[in-house]
């Protein structure tokens, strides 16, 4: 009896989960197929048309389109901000976890980081806009990169705190007795042992930067515009270019898809760790 019901649950569970998976994947395939269709086929709802590369060609190589540059901007901002935030967060996390800073300092740092992490980003963007404009930095890479760093900082610190807690304190103390200063402990012991954690935290920081729209929309200009902002402008033009919008969407999904295909373990670990914390 119980064996039977367990079996039923087993099969039913599969059906439900795969059913939902279909609902997730369906739209993605649809947009993928649209990216290979002519505008007219999209508008007519033609099911099957010979796939063409026109949308991608126009999007990437036509004179009117800056999308290649937008992708480059996204990549540049993403990579630079990820590298910097990883260094800053790992340094801070090591001190918080192992070097016993004053309790109030830890509490303020982590507490405010948590609150900031959850506050609507847009409530800060206006203030940033005024600050960077007054400094003459509006529309520069510096402005976007700095804000992306601080945007990803709380999550990265929390993740690194979690990962560094897994490095036994004994190891740190052994290194201290072997003659290491804090800096040497960090470089010789902590860094080599936290590459896995840094990969996870870095993957998520990059995704966050790559996906950001609220900040980039308001702090970039024509030259520093990132891919998500460009996609949004497609939708605002008088004559919406659906095909190019679809292919731009597909291209913007690529880094995320690569990450979950090749680094699923890290992404899951990071996401779950971040959420549970």
């Amino acid at each position: 009896m119980s064996g039977k019901s367990a079996r039923k649950g087993f099969l039913g569970g599969h059906l439900v989960a795969w059913g939902y998976a279909l609902i997730i994947v369906g739209p993605m395939f649809w947009i993928l197929s649209n990216s290979f269709k002519r505008q007219i086929d999209i508008l007519m709802g033609t099911g099957f048309a010979t796939p063409i590369l026109d949308n991608y060609r126009t999007l990437l190589f036509s004179r009117q389109s800056d999308f290649l540059m937008n992708l480059w901007n996204s990549a540049l901002v993403g990579v630079v901000s990820t590298v910097i935030v990883l260094v800053i967060a790992t340094l801070a996390a090591f001190t918080v976890v192992r070097l016993e800073p004053p309790k109030w300092a830890t509490f303020l740092l982590l507490g405010w980081a948590l609150v900031f992490h959850m506050l609507p980003t847009l409530t800060f963007v206006g203030s940033w806009y005024v600050m960077f404009s007054n400094l003459g930095l509006h529309g520069t890479y510096t402005a976007v990169i700095l804000t992306h760093i601080v945007h990803a900082l709380p999550q990265t610190v929390f993740l690194m705190v979690g990962f560094l807690l897994n490095i036994p304190n004994d190891l740190i103390q052994a290194a201290r007795m072997d003659g290491c200063s804090y800096g040497q402990v960090f470089r010789r012991i902590v860094l080599p042992l936290s590459f896995g954690g840094m990969a996870a935290a870095g993957a998520l920081a990059f995704i966050q930067s790559w996906s950001d729209f609220a900040i980039a929309l308001n702090l970039t200009d024509q030259d520093t515009m990132t891919a998500p902002v460009a996609i949004a402008t497609f939708a605002q033009e008088h004559q919406i270019r659906y095909g190019e919008m679809a292919s731009a969407s597909v291209l913007s999904m690529v880094p995320a898809l690569i990450l979950i295909l090749f680094g699923q373990r890290y992404v899951v670990r990071g996401l779950m760790a971040g959420a549970v914390k």
């Binding site: 939902y20 998976a21 649809w30 508008l43 497609f234 679809a246 969407s249 913007s252 999904m253 699923q264």
Partner: peptide, 28 residues
């Protein structure tokens, strides 16, 4: 399954917006 379930979480929200705008269009 995990890979598929992760997709909506990691792809840019603006892409999700674009995607559903196309999906939910009135005429096509």
């Amino acid at each position: 399954l995990t890979t598929i379930f992760l997709m909506p979480i990691v792809i840019p929200p603006i892409v999700i917006g674009a995607m559903w705008r196309l999906l939910l269009g009135r005429d096509f």
